[in-house]
Amino acid sequence: MSIAEHIPAQIHTWQPELVALRHELHQHPEIGLHETRTAQLVAAKLQAWGYTVTTGIGGTGVVGQLCAGDSRKTLGLRADMDCLPLTEKTGLPYASQTPGLMHACGHDGHIATMLMTARYLAATKLFDGTVNVIFQPGEEGVHGASKMIADGLFDRFPCDMVFGYHNWPHLPDGTIHLQPGPVMASSDRVRLTIQGRGGHASAPERTVDPIVVGAALVNSLQTIVARNVAPLNAAVVTIGSFIAGQAETYNVIPDTATLYLSIRTLDKQVREAVLARIQALAAGIGAAYGANIECENFQISLPVVNAPAPTALAQAVATQLFGPDKTCTDFEPVMASEDFSFMLDRVPGCFALMSGGAKRHYVHTSRYDFDDALIAPMATYFATIVETYLQAPSR
């Protein structure tokens, strides 16, 4: 049986309408923590379908709550709403109408998926308990999940478990990936500012050359993964920028240099060890060369770690809907990051990666576009999770 045979008739019927809504969202992208129009659209849809709607959570976050029956069991379903600061080059008829902004990560599709799920659950109410449909702002590096949590998300809307997904181009067509344990990496940004002493290129002995210090630091940073992280663990230390001096200056040694790093890990302890090692290397190399190196860390996300029980539930549902050959339960984690990690750190849950088309453009690129064919099957997946966990008593 294919996934198409499991999709309820209502979802089939509503697919064109939700695709049109997705295209509308795509035309009007909004950057993280400024999703005013998007949040208003989401809230209006949820209210029309009978949800109790709360807006302004963590800024522009929206939660729609729907209750049925007498059970005190609760579930959370989450979608992200923000776009990226990118100029779209798809040439699509529904391309972004806002210069410099586009939905290059598929959050417009995630919204449409979760709205389809919400509409179906409201129309059928084949569950016993409470569903909290969470629309999160600011996933792209601005801590929208943390802001919602700090604003009382799980205190005001308790969830036994929480579920989400991300479309992921380049995975085999039609496959869904979900496993217990790590599925995506943490993300940290580290800025290393080297304070040396500049001077004339002809008299380097009178200077502390921050470029030489930075070069030594670049080489030493590469030893962290090779010599300080166990071979069976995973970590990435990437130097994205090394900035020093003025362009086309030949005879001036600058006062300062700055390195910008991206750090990825799959384990909290590995993350802490990598960051501590960066600080130790900066202090040691700075002392050795007579420079001062300031180390600043900006945490973007934790590792995305799925809990065993919610993942077992999600895997059973996925296997039922997509088939065992399309449900991947053992795979190498992705070293990209996800703000949903902060929710999983508070509430057990499961985050799935769903193929966005093996030959489609990758996320975070100017020619990317979400695959509308994912909306109906993923809405069916989330609705089935709700109906399975919040199983209504037989009538």
Rank of each mutant, 00 (worst) to 15 (best):
A48G: 10
H23Q: 13
T113Q: 10
M184F: 00
D209A: 15
Q299I: 03
A282V: 14
E5W: 09
L18S: 11
D345E: 04
F135R: 04
G198D: 12
L302V: 00
M148C: 10
K147F: 05
K45D: 00
I111N: 01
F351P: 06
A392N: 02
L101V: 13
M81C: 10
A309F: 09
F382Q: 09
T193P: 01
G69K: 12
P254G: 02
F382D: 12
F340I: 01
C350N: 06
R22A: 10
H143Q: 01
T74E: 02
G61C: 08
S186R: 00
A48R: 11
P16E: 13
T238I: 04
N132R: 00
T258D: 03
T36M: 04
S394A: 12
G174M: 07
A4K: 09
C328P: 10
M354P: 02
N306S: 06
V42M: 05
K125A: 00
V213E: 13
N297R: 13
V229D: 10
V213Q: 10
K73T: 03
A185K: 05
P377H: 04
E88Q: 13
N228P: 13
A312T: 05
G198E: 15
V19N: 10
A336M: 07
V317L: 04
F135L: 08
A392P: 01
L41K: 03
G240S: 10
A215Y: 15
L25D: 04
S202K: 15
A383G: 09
R227N: 14
S2F: 01
V183G: 12
M161S: 10
T117E: 01
T54K: 14
Q65N: 02
F127R: 00
A215N: 14
G50I: 02
A4V: 06
V225P: 06
L41T: 12
P303C: 04
A203L: 13
S241P: 09
D345I: 02
Q10A: 06
A383Y: 11
L18G: 13
T52Q: 09
A373M: 08
D369E: 06
L115N: 01
Q40L: 07
R360F: 08
A79T: 15
V183P: 02
E296Y: 06
I31T: 12
D369I: 07
S96M: 08
F157R: 12
P93D: 00
I7H: 11
A235G: 11
A312M: 03
A118C: 15
P310K: 11
L192I: 05
K45M: 07
H6C: 07
L21T: 03
G109M: 02
P377E: 03
L84C: 13
I278A: 14
L353E: 02
I375F: 06
V386I: 09
T327W: 02
Q40D: 13
L302W: 01
I31W: 04
T55H: 06
P348Q: 05
T193S: 14
S220D: 14
I293Q: 05
A312V: 03
T98I: 09
T207H: 01
L41Y: 07
V334D: 00
H103D: 06
A79E: 07
N219G: 15
R367K: 11
V252A: 15
R206H: 06
T327A: 14
G349R: 05
T311A: 08
